[in-house]
Design a binder for these strands. Sequence first.
DNA 1: CATTTTGTTCAAGTTTTTTTGAACAAAGTT
DNA 2: AACTTTGTTCAAAAAAACTTGAACAAAATG
Lengths: 181, 181
Amino acid sequence: MPATQSDTPTLSAWETSTIDVFVRAASLIGLPRSIGEIYGLLFCTPEALSFDELVERLQISKGSVSQGLKVLRQLGAVKLHYVPGSRRDHYQPELSMKRLVRGFIKDQFEPHLLSGSQRLDNIEALIQEEGDRASRDHALSRLGTLRSWQKRTRKLMPIVMAVLGGAKFFDKEPTDQETII
Amino acid sequence: MPATQSDTPTLSAWETSTIDVFVRAASLIGLPRSIGEIYGLLFCTPEALSFDELVERLQISKGSVSQGLKVLRQLGAVKLHYVPGSRRDHYQPELSMKRLVRGFIKDQFEPHLLSGSQRLDNIEALIQEEGDRASRDHALSRLGTLRSWQKRTRKLMPIVMAVLGGAKFFDKEPTDQETII
DNA sequence: CATTTTGTTCAAGTTTTTTTGAACAAAGTT
DNA sequence: AACTTTGTTCAAAAAAACTTGAACAAAATG
């Protein structure tokens, strides 16, 4: 069989524009263009799409699609959809804003907050090395500011989730020295 | 006068660590390292700092400091502080989390939301070019999803600001109610 | 078990972003 | 007016992030 030479992958006009919206959104939250494209095309398409269909329709490399889907899976932004009679994985977009936001927060935000806590404890120790009293006092005051910001950020998360649909986030007391990772 | 040859700009240990926290935070919200460094040093220092002091203590170029301060001013993250007897501009950090967040949202977030609205209207028009009924219906349904996401995002902003402003929504138990706001 | 299908990995190439520093402008001094 | 101080601009260099594609692995098929 001669391979079909030039199958225009033709995304329709509205699909192109919609994908563009997701490319921008991705960039806004620090994700690469290819991830916006992949999620965008899944978002536009009624049926679940396979790996190959993403490569072909978006005209991007297998490597990009593979890595992009990996991140999207990790974020919970795409779901595997079993298609009978096909060995390929098929993907569908997560359409719940709440779940999308939760995935993003848990994956990209929470880790920074947690590691942040340890860093601040560390800084507190370093401040003790400061020579004079006035310096230490000022430094401790700023550290207090930092801790209050962190606390308020933590407080915000559950409220955000609640507004988006009603879920809880940081139920526990997070400030422990021996907190695991 | 012979110029002092090698004045170690020596940031103290706690300053270095604190600046590191801001460099990470900057990167998290998509701002370059140098901006994190500048804000971080201002945050650490009791007195207002001049342009030159930032260049010298951080050991980064004048260009970076100039551009960094420009962005920070635009975000409302630093304030000019008049120092009598000096021609130089002196800078102090904005320490109110609420104002910092508001500056960021207004400058980096809202514009995208607004241009987003126009884009969605545009997409609606493009959808009319779709050939068959079923395609149009599906596309319109997805457009509806997009609009609902946008609406909820808008709704969220004032709530975030209210929480950061000190308004106490739920002081004790976090988020269990169905009656938010 | 050899082959094909499906998808991942990663080094190298490409693109984008950030930083630098020299030239320039604006305003203050002498 | 000439000179100094202060800070901005922008083209080029450097660094970082992203994408590609070929080699590879894993599993299904014949």
